[in-house]
């Protein structure tokens, strides 16, 4: 029974190969808003199941989760399509949540962490929609030079990617710190693995940014993100920074 429940939770807090289900569903959906909903809800379902059924998490699942997070972080390095990149990083990020379900961390805290991890990914989905609207595809290395031609869109994209790769003051930073703090005294190898996953996110994030915003300005003039739209993104990002700053104090 427990194994069955673990597998069910492993579907929503994706463990490889169960993670392929989420990636299949996410990539089949082409509507940005639906993708946003999926990103916000998917890990919460897993957490609710784990919490309601009071699932005890054995050590081997922790290592399985670590392996899954590492696998998807590594696979994200070579990706150029922003949608696939988002789903892979989401998979890698949510797998880290297993490490926080040690029975000592509040369920509500883990649920909030999951939400805070999903929000920047959801913002990236919306931004990739903006890119698709302008260029027909959200793809790195295809056009480039957006920092010069679409400065507002690029600026927001930079901050969203920084939030995703767990830069300090964003909630992801506290999640990664909490995971490393929890693991390091017991398994140095596992703590180093989490740190390597974090490093791979940074690498993948830098490749994504460089493939989109860097380069000479586009010849063809495209409309930049509207001022109102920029404000909405900014407010959400500021809220993330506030929650991230608050969560550092709770480490």
């Amino acid at each position: 029974m427990t194994e069955g429940l673990l597998l069910l939770v492993g579907l929503f807090l994706p463990l490889f190969p169960l993670s392929m289900v989420f990636n299949e569903v996410f990539q089949r959906i082409r509507i940005a808003n639906l993708r946003v909903v999926l990103l916000l809800i998917w890990p919460q379902i897993g957490l609710v199941i784990a919490h309601t059924a009071s699932v005890e998490i054995p050590d081997w699942v922790i290592f399985w989760a670590l392996g899954s997070a590492l696998l998807y972080a590594f696979r994200a390095l070579a990706l150029r399509e922003v949608g696939v990149w988002t789903s892979f990083i989401a998979t890698s990020t949510w797998a880290i949540l297993w490490l926080l379900m040690d029975g000592q961390t509040d369920f509500s805290k883990v649920a909030l962490y999951a939400l805070a991890l999903s929000v920047p990914l959801a913002l990236l989905v919306l931004l990739s929609g903006e890119l698709e609207k302008r260029f027909g595809a959200a793809y790195t290395g295809l056009y480039g030079g957006l920092a010069l031609s679409l400065p507002r869109l690029s600026g927001v994209l930079v901050f969203v990617v920084l939030a995703i790769v767990a830069t300090p003051f964003f909630p992801g930073f506290s999640v990664m710190m909490a995971a490393i703090i929890g693991l390091s005294p017991h398994s140095f190898f596992a703590a180093v693995t989490v740190a390597v996953i974090w490093l791979l996110w940074s690498w993948a994030g830098a490749r994504l940014l460089q493939g989109i915003i860097v380069g000479p300005a586009q010849d063809e003039v495209k409309t930049d993100l509207s001022l109102n739209g920029t404000w909405v993104y900014s407010v959400i990002l500021i809220l993330l920074v506030i929650s991230g700053t608050y969560s550092i104090g709770n480490l």
């Binding site: 490393i180 703090i181 974090w198 940074s202 830098a206 460089q210």
Partner: peptide, 24 residues
């Protein structure tokens, strides 16, 4: 990017050191 990645390697080491000190 080379700089960023090298610095991140250093960051990781510092985080691990901090985690051990905090635990102890």
């Amino acid at each position: 990017f080379w700089t960023l990645i090298t610095y991140r390697i250093g960051d990781i080491a510092l985080v691990l050191a901090a985690a051990l000190l905090f635990h102890a």
